[in-house]
Design a protein around this nucleic acid. Structure first.
Lengths: 192, 192
DNA sequence: GCCAGCATGTAAGGAGTTACATGATTAT
DNA sequence: ATAATCATGTAACTCCTTACATGCTGGC
């Protein structure tokens, strides 16, 4: 009979990711938002499909959290950049202040497959591992590039810190993968 | 003009998680599958909603990858356990053998919020961090319990190895979180 | 001339969620 | 009594994805 609804409702996380990317002051188009997500959020969150970004922008505009502004460009197609409104900023603050901090969720294709690795050959198990380690090395390389790309501006201190955090996580992954590889060599699992 | 469709189609990952859980030989009900997912897959993949499990079971049964078997119980409600069929096992093998090993995706609520942390106070930033670190300590505790719970049976070697892998990742997270905390203390970020 | 990047969108569908409903048994 | 666990399911909805479509500009 009438939920108390103690915790206020929030928009989906994607919406706050967009608001957050706009909170640095720049006006960004849907296209540019996608690039930013691919270039940074991807490493510790994920990156939404392009169509999803436009969808969120429409919703945020309807709510008054972002305001569109047409920008004419002579060298490229015109674009619509969005800016964070005052109420958009409050909404972002409200989310960061009061939304619950859930534990991280790791979607780990390699670990999932290896967990069921008893149904395949030892060769395939090693292949999965080395394949995965290559992936993670790549990610670490891109993260490196990202950190270097950030200037020493005060406003990117947090971005830099969070990038370093992601590096720690991926390094932990790499360390664990190495341990798994050793374990598989030391004590071969028979295939069943 | 007719896509080549070079990579054969696969079912959604959830379906293979179910097949994988059944590949250890036990017949499991939807309810039990949910428990298994919560108890292990959760740490390196995620855990599907209960309704999703039943949905996948129906699809897998329709495809002939699992076979239902009614089990009457006197102490508890009867249940339907599902067993992996031969073709279900081949399908699982096919997936592990030939599906691409994508890089891991980390959904990290704390890092995402801190990335936009310049809009909130230093107190809230620290709160997010410590809140997150508590979460991860909890997860590590549960992973510990999981590893202890596994006997020395050969068939759980891989499960044990993968659990250890997850531990490495979460420890990397903790290490990174500590570094972020120090960085915030050393060089306070002004709120904007 | 054509492809790559910029820029925005629609359409269709799938995966996954929450909430609800039912009913049995066991423990408090 | 009633709460908790076991066990299964439906209904409604949302997020998100893939695929497609359009058109412009710049470089090879």
């Amino acid at each position: 009979m009438g939920d108390v609804n103690e915790t206020t409702e929030f928009l989906p996380t994607t919406a706050y990711a967009v608001l957050g990317l706009l909170s640095f002051g720049e006006g960004l188009s849907g296209y540019e938002l996608r690039q930013r997500a691919l270039g940074s959020l991807r490493f510790f969150y994920w990156s939404p499909a392009q169509s999803q970004i436009y969808r969120e922008l429409r919703r945020l505009e309807a709510q008054g959290f972002v305001a569109p502004q047409r920008v004419e460009q002579q060298d490229r197609p015109d674009k619509t950049v969005y800016r964070l409104t005052a109420s958009g900023r409050s909404e972002l603050v409200r989310w960061i202040e009061s939304s619950p901090i859930d534990p991280p969720v790791i979607k780990h294709p390699a670990a999932l497959r290896l967990f069921f690795g008893h149904v395949v050959s030892g060769e395939r198990r090693h292949e999965i591992l080395s394949n995965h380690m290559d992936n993670v090395e790549d990610v670490l390389g891109e993260l490196e590039a990202l950190t270097v790309g950030l200037d020493d501006d005060e406003r990117v201190q947090l971005a830099r810190a969070v990038s370093g955090w992601a590096v720690s996580i991926y390094r932990g992954d790499l360390r664990g993968a190495g341990a798994v590889a050793s374990a598989l060599d030391a004590d071969p699992v028979s295939m069943r």
